[in-house]
Amino acid sequence: MKRDERRVVSPWNIANVLTVLRLALVPFFVVCLFLPGSGWRVAALVVFAVASITDHLDGELARRYGLITDFGKIADPIADKALIGAALVSLSILGELQWWITILILGRELGITVLRFMLLRHAVIPASYGGKVKTVLQIAAIVLYLLPWVPEIVQLVVMGAALVVTLGTGVDYVIRAIRLRKVAEQARGE
């Protein structure tokens, strides 16, 4: 294959199907979380866990088998934010998580998502190691809040770590975006 030739990848591939599945699981997760009874709480936990696993799996499959598509680049972060956002908002509505934590995390996520879309015409900033740690911490914190027997102090410590890393990686992303934009402008001769 010549350098100029690019393999066309169908948006209908397993990685994107998993991303869409994650997005489709969000309302089921929320419904299970709000239904009364410990059985429904466990169901919410299982749905959240399955959706979280698809987050790792779709990215792994896309990279390993060259299934990266423009659809996936846009839909994957949206599905991630929808799942995490629905969990945080739901836990705050239920009075189990302070609203200020939810607002800070969602504010960062929304801001970075908007920034990402603004930069699409220049380039895509790849996820950093810190971004991956942020996601793992957010998922772990939410799982701890979904489990009924976890002491509140453990929930707060892990959520606090998730919050610190979330805000820190947000600052890092903004700095990288500014640098990328400057490089792009210099390359265009502006």
Score class of each variant (00 low, 15 high):
96 E>P: 06
34 F>P: 11
150 V>I: 12
59 G>M: 05
130 G>A: 15
80 D>V: 03
67 L>I: 09
39 G>R: 07
143 V>N: 03
31 V>Y: 00
92 S>H: 01
24 A>V: 12
55 D>G: 06
59 G>H: 05
143 V>C: 07
18 L>S: 08
49 A>R: 10
116 R>D: 13
32 C>P: 07
67 L>S: 06
149 W>K: 07
110 L>A: 15
46 V>K: 07
147 L>N: 04
110 L>N: 13
87 A>Q: 00
46 V>A: 10
121 R>I: 10
84 I>Y: 11
84 I>M: 14
111 G>H: 14
125 I>N: 01
98 Q>S: 13
99 W>Q: 07
49 A>M: 12
38 S>M: 11
67 L>D: 07
48 F>P: 07
103 I>H: 09
60 E>F: 14
57 L>H: 04
50 V>R: 12
62 A>R: 10
26 V>P: 05
143 V>S: 07
112 I>R: 11
129 Y>R: 14
70 D>W: 00
139 I>Y: 04
42 V>E: 07
116 R>C: 13
125 I>K: 08
21 L>N: 03
144 L>A: 08
69 T>D: 03
141 A>Y: 14
69 T>K: 01
18 L>V: 04
102 T>P: 08
119 L>W: 00
19 T>W: 12
89 V>G: 12
55 D>K: 08
98 Q>V: 12
27 P>K: 02
19 T>L: 06
40 W>I: 03
99 W>C: 04
141 A>I: 14
98 Q>H: 13
116 R>N: 12
140 A>Y: 13
91 L>N: 02
47 V>F: 02
31 V>W: 08
20 V>L: 15
149 W>Y: 09
92 S>Y: 05
86 A>P: 05
72 G>A: 02
24 A>Y: 02
46 V>E: 01
62 A>E: 08
31 V>F: 08
113 T>Q: 13
37 G>A: 05
93 I>P: 08
77 P>S: 07
64 R>T: 15
105 I>P: 11
43 A>T: 05
114 V>M: 11
45 L>S: 00
112 I>D: 14
122 H>A: 15
132 K>D: 06
42 V>C: 03
89 V>S: 11
94 L>F: 03
37 G>D: 04
67 L>F: 06
137 L>C: 10
20 V>F: 15
97 L>Q: 06
132 K>P: 07
58 D>T: 01
